[in-house]
């Protein structure tokens, strides 16, 4: 199974959901499939699930999707019990387990040694956590999670070393990505996130 294929399979189902992407190739792949200001590229390894959780808790009527990885989730494994406790019903947590630190030299992660991310999630108290067995099954589970409206984690074992260097560049600077993402949320939700300077500034 390839991550790119999984992402392509759910692109339409994601619709206009806000998507937080982990550090690494997932962001470039997702941005090639669904470009736009509704995607935030995380810059702290592991924090994707936490940023997505905060966003989902703040915007309870908006679907939020986290694109997580094995290295990231292992680094921030304490997010799992916190997610189990908060269980934001509008958050779908997708975990692509390729067994390596993809963007930092393809060295193995602990999942190659048998650490099972879905068992970890269940052990942390997460009720809806599963492995997807194929791209079709991944899409099915994604749509089940959407209908369920309960926090769900869907993991997929994917090939290591997918080549994403030929994909279009993300195209915006890191801080610009954050501002465009926030302005996008302002328009979607009709709220003000970043205040504009007043006339006396």
């Amino acid at each position: 199974m390839r991550r790119y294929g999984c992402l392509q399979a759910i692109a339409e189902d994601v619709g206009d959901a806000l998507v937080i992407c982990t550090v690494g190739g997932a962001a470039a792949q997702w941005n090639a499939i669904r470009p736009g200001d509704g995607n935030l590229r995380c810059r702290t390894l592991g924090l994707v699930s936490s940023i997505a959780m905060g966003l989902a808790l703040a915007l309870q009527n908006r679907m939020v999707v986290a694109l997580d990885g094995d290295g990231a989730l292992l680094m921030n494994a304490c997010a799992l019990p916190t997610l189990a406790c908060q269980r934001p019903g509008n958050l779908i947590h997708l975990v692509f387990d390729n067994g390596v630190y993809e963007s930092s030299g393809l060295r193995p992660t602990a999942t190659l040694n048998g650490a099972d991310l879905v068992e970890m999630a269940r052990g942390a108290g997460i009720k809806h956590a599963c492995w997807a067995s194929s791209v079709e099954n991944f899409k099915q589970e994604f749509n089940k999670a959407k209908e369920r409206k309960a926090y769900s984690l869907i993991a997929a074992k994917v090939e290591a070393g997918e080549d994403y260097r030929e994909l279009p560049a993300f195209g915006v600077a890191e801080v610009e990505n954050a501002y465009r993402f926030m302005r996008h949320i302002e328009k979607l939700e009709g709220i003000r996130v970043v205040p504009l300077p007043g006339p006396r500034h």
Binding site: I51, G54, L57, A58, L59
Partner: peptide, 10 residues
């Protein structure tokens, strides 16, 4: 991270 996400949500 949770605070950052919540801030982005207003």
């Amino acid at each position: 991270g949770i605070c950052a996400g919540a801030y982005m949500g207003g």
